[in-house]
Nucleic acid binder design. Structure first.
Length: 425
DNA sequence: TCTGGGGTCCTAGGACCC
DNA sequence: TCTGGGGTCCTAGGACCC
C-alpha cells in the first residue's frame, strides 16, 4: 500500500468553447461575432451555441422548431452538424495537448483531462494560460482550462473558467466559496434523477453535497454518488484513464427525415446502419457476438400510439462480416416490426465486441474467414476511395427518402483543398 | 410539420447450481 | 405435499456523460 499526498495531485480539464460553433467559425470569418447555432442530426435540436446565441436565451438541447422564430428575428446563423469536420479538428486539438503531458485522457470530442502534478503551485495558472494560447494559435480553437486536485473539482473549475475572462482557474483556495454558488445539477455525475433526489433533501448546491454524511449518500444513491462526494472533498476517486481502450459496443442509429411506415423502408435503413456499424468495427479490428435491432415511433407524438421494441440475437461465432450481420439484423427486424405504426427512428447495436485476433476455433472458421476477409477488405478499400457506400448491398436501397435532413450544412471537408479559406490581397 | 446520437457503468432480479 | 440457504453469472433497464 502506498501513501499518496493528495494535495500534490493536480488535474487540468481543457474544454473547447462552443466547440462545434468554433469549428464552423474557423472556416467562415463572417460569423465570428454574431449569434451562431449548430443543430443535431436531422436538424432536430440545438447542440452548440455561441455566447451571442446563449445570450438570446437559446437553450442547449432545445428543439429547433421551438426557436425558429427567435432565430429568424435575430438573424442567428444556423448550421447542420458536420461530424467529420469536428472529428478532424478535435484530433488536431488533442495532438497539441499531448505536447504538454503524456498523462492525458481524451474524455470526449472537445475535452481532455491532463495530469499536471509535476507543475509547481506558483506556476500552475501560468501553465494553464500557456495551454490555452498554444491550442488557439495552432488550431484556432478557443478553450477554457480548469485545474484542481480531482477530476470533479477540475470540472467545477472549468465551469467557472468559462465565465471568467482569463479562461483559466486553478482551484486550490476558497473552494468552499465557489461550491456554495455552484448549482447541484451542474456537478459532474449529478444528472436529472440525482438532482431531484438531492433537492428534495435540501441539498441544492455543491457545498451542501460535499458535506452530507457518507452513510446517507451510500444508502440513498450508489457507489458513483459516493465517489462524487469524495471528489468534491478533494479525495481523488476517479482515475485518469490514459490508456486508449477499444469500445465494447457499437451503435448506429438515426431518426428519419420523415416518418416511415413500411417494412421495406425500415429494412433499407437497418441495412444501411448495419453496414456502417460493421465497417466501424472492422476499422477497429474487432468482431461482434451479438446484434441488437431497435425501432420506435415518436415519443412526442401524443396523437398516435407509441411503439418501441428491440431484439438481441446472439451469433454462433464472432464475426465482422457485413453480409452475415445484415442477414441477422433483418431477421430481427422481421420479428419486431408491427404494421400500422409511423416509425421515427431505427438503429442497430453490435455488442460483445472482441479483438479480431482473439480467435475462437471452429471447424469452419478458416475457410469462411479467408473468403469473407478478402471481400470485406475490398469493400472497405473501395468505399474509402470512392466515398461511403460506393459499394453497398441492394437492400440498402438507392432512393432513400427516409434519410435525415441536413439543410444547413457548411459542407466543409478538411480533406479537400476546396474548403481552404481564400485570401484576397 | 418539425424533439440527436453514441457511449459506459451500476444494480436488481432471475436463472441456475450445490 | 412439504420445501433452505447461499453463491455466481447474466441481462435488461436505468442513470449518467458529452
Amino acid at each position: 500500500m502506498s501513501f499518496i499526498n493528495n494535495s500534490r495531485k493536480k488535474i487540468a480539464l481543457v474544454d473547447c468553447n462552443s466547440f462545434y460553433v468554433s469549428c464552423e467559425r474557423l472556416f467562415n470569418p463572417k460569423i465570428r461575432n454574431v449569434p451562431v447555432v449548430v443543430l443535431s442530426n436531422n436538424d432536430g435540436c440545438v447542440i452548440s451555441r455561441s455566447t451571442e446565441a446563449k445570450a438570446l436565451g437559446i437553450k442547449m438541447g432545445e428543439p429547433y422548431f421551438k426557436v425558429k422564430e427567435l432565430v429568424k428575428k435575430n438573424n442567428v446563423q444556423i448550421f447542420s452538424s458536420n461530424y467529420s469536420l469536428y472529428g478532424d479538428l478535435s484530433r488536431r486539438v488533442m495532438r497539441v495537448l499531448k505536447g504538454f503531458s503524456d498523462k492525458i485522457e481524451i474524455y470526449s470530442i472537445d475535452e481532455a483531462f491532463i495530469d499536471l502534478s509535476h507543475i509547481k503551485d506558483e506556476t500552475t495558472e501560468e501553465y494553464g494560460k500557456k495551454i490555452r494560447e498554444r491550442v488557439l494559435r495552432w488550431t484556432g480553437i478557443p478553450t477554457s482550462v480548469g485545474i484542481s486536485c480531482t477530476k470533479t473539482l477540475s470540472k467545477v473549475a472549468n465551469h467557472v473558467a468559462k465565465k471568467n475572462k482569463a479562461g483559466v482557474i486553478f482551484l486550490k483556495e476558497n473552494i468552499d466559496e465557489i461550491l456554495k454558488n455552484f448549482e447541484i445539477s451542474d456537478v459532474w455525475g449529478v444528472g436529472r434523477q440525482l438532482s431531484k433526489l438531492y433537492i428534495k433533501n435540501g441539498i441544492d448546491n455543491a457545498y451542501k453535497l460535499k458535506n452530507i454524511s457518507n452513510t446517507w449518500v451510500k444508502k440513498s444513491t450508489n457507489v458513483l454518488g459516493a465517489k462524487t462526494v469524495m471528489e468534491l472533498r478533494g479525495i481523488p476517486c476517479i482515475d485518469l484513464e490514459t490508456e486508449e481502450t477499444k469500445r465494447k459496443s457499437c451503435c448506429v442509429s438515426r431518426s428519419f427525415g420523415k416518418k416511415v411506415e413500411s417494412l421495406d423502408k425500415l429494412k433499407e435503413s437497418i441495412t444501411t446502419h448495419c453496414l456502417n456499424a460493421a465497417e466501424k468495427i472492422r476499422m477497429d479490428k474487432q468482431t461482434t457476438r451479438a446484434v441488437t435491432v431497435f425501432i420506435r415511433t415518436s415519443p412526442f407524438d401524443k396523437n398516435r400510439k407509441y411503439y418501441s421494441n428491440s431484439i438481441t440475437i446472439e451469433l454462433p461465432v464472432d464475426t465482422n462480416n457485413s453480409l452475415e450481420l445484415v442477414k441477422t439484423a433483418i431477421n430481427g427486424l422481421n420479428k419486431i416490426y408491427k404494421y400500422g405504426y409511423f416509425y421515427q427512428k431505427a438503429g442497430i447495436i453490435l455488442s460483445k465486441l472482441k479483438n479480431s485476433s482473439e480467435k475462437e476455433l471452429n471447424l469452419l472458421t478458416p475457410i469462411l474467414e479467408n473468403k469473407s476477409k478478402t471481400l470485406m477488405k475490398a469493400i472497405d478499400f473501395t468505399n474509402a476511395k470512392y466515398g461511403r457506400n460506393a459499394i453497398s448491398v441492394a437492400q440498402a436501397g438507392i432512393n432513400n427518402d427516409w434519410k435525415m435532413r441536413r439543410e444547413h450544412s457548411s459542407k466543409i471537408d478538411t480533406a479537400s483543398f476546396d474548403s481552404l479559406p481564400k485570401i484576397s490581397i
